[in-house]
Design a protein around this nucleic acid. Structure first.
Lengths: 209, 209
DNA sequence: AAGGAACCGGAGATCACTCCTCCGGTTTCC
DNA sequence: GGAAACCGGAGGAGTGATCTCCGGTTCCTT
């Protein structure tokens, strides 16, 4: 390690914590669009203090969302531990959506690869791998339609994300209704799906806005 | 009629047509967020000319989208004419989504009641009534799950709208995949949906952003 | 064919944001 | 007790949309 991290002065460290706490709340409630000025005000410190500690929003987001993103990856891992392949799928989507429904920032982070540093990227990759496993297993067991694909998962999350956003104030649980609908469609072996799933690269493009 | 509409001067009328044509194209391609300045430039006239003819964007949108909205209402009406209740539902969603996929402005207009004058509102109301009929009929025939509701239609459109937006450049037909998935869920008489559908007022709120 | 009303173009004023810097004054730590 | 680190927040700079204003042009009427 090239730079020996000297500990911050006491007041500086206190403010850093305040900023992180405030940013955590604000990002959860209002999404990633909050201003660092907002964060400063909500933390009860000056704007300069925030910018001194976190040169830009990316850094702050990275610092905050690493563990939240990890929580989602954990949800997928736990689902993998569920013996029934179908229940595993259901569990993954339900728990995953719950996380997103309670944390607007996380939802936006998942909806767009645009934000987020390298740390988040690796977690995201691991998440994708686990999801692929869940799908493969469920399809091998014949409980998920054969023409579904792991690449459908992010799109489903995207779709439910709109419901969460729109209905947040009216019926914050409404997304469950449409998740149930989609899961039913995922299970049913109805008429073949009319379009191929996205490839990995396509998915990257789609999630990059 | 209190004010006798004197016809516009020839050059003025020509420019009005140019503006309408340009706005039509731009709204289709780029959505309702286009500036009246954009419209002016694209129409080859000055900004002032646009603002003189259409005091604000609302008026222009109303003038343009009346017939496009009507087209969607027509799609619903045509679906009602289809004898098979299930095919009617499928047809409505497919044709409706096709319209939206080709017209970003229309999609946004449907996704939010925020824009649009009284004219659009009445068409929207008629549309809703027709959709309700489609659902009732299909449910009576037992081809759509009993716990689905007409209020689900706009939400489904909303969800598919995201797919259209995101995947437009990558695979403009991708929405068909997820429509098929949802329709399968709508048909299947799987486990009961876990949340009540939105009421009319709730729906208004949800669509008002 | 001439005069005035109607119309044109587009520079730029206004407003509302966000991002970020700067520096006089304060706190901490050695 | 004094230097280094830190604080706050006013405000500069950049952006982007909306809409006005007015000198110059075009059209229609008589």
């Amino acid at each position: 390690m090239p730079t020996t991290e000297r500990p911050l002065r006491r007041d500086a460290e206190l403010n850093r914590q305040r900023i992180l706490a405030a940013a955590g709340e604000l990002f959860s409630e209002r999404g990633l669009c909050v201003t660092l000025d907002d964060v400063a005000h909500h933390a009860g410190v000056g704007v300069g203090t925030v910018y001194r500690r976190f040169p830009n929003k990316e850094v702050l987001i990275d610092a905050l969302f690493e563990r939240r993103m990890q929580a989602l990856a954990d949800v997928a891992a736990q689902a993998r531990a569920e013996p029934d392949p179908w229940r595993a799928i259901v569990q993954f989507f339900e728990r995953g959506c719950e996380l997103q429904a309670h944390d607007r920032g996380l939802k936006e982070l998942l909806a767009s690869n645009a934000h987020g540093g390298p740390c988040l990227v690796t977690i995201r990759d691991r998440l994708r791998a686990t999801v692929a496993e869940l799908f493969t297993r469920a399809q091998a067991a014949g409980v998920v339609r054969a023409d579904a694909a792991p690449a459908d998962a992010p799109l489903i999350h995207l779709m439910l994300g709109v419901v969460m956003d729109r209905a947040r104030d009216v019926d914050p649980e409404l997304w469950r209704r449409y998740l149930a609908l989609v899961l039913d469609g995922l299970r049913a072996d109805g008429p073949a799906l009319p379009v191929e799933p996205l490839t990995g690269e396509q998915l990257d493009v789609v999630l990059m806005r």
